[in-house]
Design a binder for these strands. Structure first.
Lengths: 133, 133
DNA sequence: GGTTGACTTCGAGTGCGCTCCAACTGACAG
DNA sequence: CTGTCAGTTGGAGCGCACTCGAAGTCAACC
């Protein structure tokens, strides 16, 4: 499975805010808010001033949703977006940011697995002592 | 490792709110708030009206911190606490609650592992294209 | 040409989970 | 007797991440 790209239709296709929201699993409110907060560079507009999301925009949003879901604060996502907008000279910084975040995600998974053990233990106990109440 | 019990000192020992907070990794504010919110049954008091946390109280708090950390909303923790206070006749409900929560935690771990892949891919990409900027 | 519906902006509101403040009390050390 | 310190209460405030309402614009369809 290639995690880097995903077809979203024919080339030169662009999506409305509603379509993009649907596709990435965020609301239109959130999409506009992300733009306002600088998590997303200003999105292109059509002649009527309506947002048009390109495949690249959608890819970026997908990445953002992953960062959010793994617990990255919006503040850090903004920082990352700013770095990305500054181009190649910030590559090292962006890589460091990802590595730090990966470490946090790994720790998170480890914690969840620990907590899962306790959950399993509890459920097992409810099972073992069934009918004793 | 026995996840069900942990020594916290000689028998009949009880802890102040500050000591309990330190031990379970919450603040004194949060401990009082948990009590107020019904996540913890009213804690025993000394002659001066100060809270005294027993080993059982601390165990309960440890469980709560695990539930919180795995993303259980406070509302659901309260529900669980209420069930627990109602005694054995709610065993089935509590078990169901844990099983539902375990399913969520498993899904969570799965998602995190997916997201980790993307993170790894990105970091790898920053590595592969090093010096190309 | 009127209606529908998705879009626009701006600013206010919401829900969650704490977090803190003010005012006070009581135990203990010097 | 006088701090100092950890505790008490009730209620206010905060940070985060959205979420929504109001008022208006525009394109498309009947």
């Amino acid at each position: 499975m290639d995690v880097s790209t995903q077809e979203i239709g024919p080339p030169e296709t662009s999506l409305s805010v509603g379509e993009a929201a649907e596709l990435v699993g965020l609301t239109t409110y959130t999409l506009r808010w992300y733009e306002q907060e600088g998590l997303v560079a200003p999105v292109g507009r059509d002649s009527a001033g309506r947002r048009r999301y390109t495949a690249a925009d959608v890819e970026w949003l997908r990445l953002l949703t992953r960062l959010r879901r793994t617990g990255m604060p919006v503040r850090d996502m903004r920082r990352y977006a700013e770095l990305a907008r500054q181009g190649d000279r910030t590559r090292a910084a962006r890589r460091a940011l990802f590595e730090a975040h990966r470490a946090r995600v790994l720790r998170q998974i480890g914690e969840l697995e620990e907590d899962l053990k306790v959950l399993n233990y509890k459920i097992d106990m409810y099972q073992r002592t069934e009918g004793c109440g």
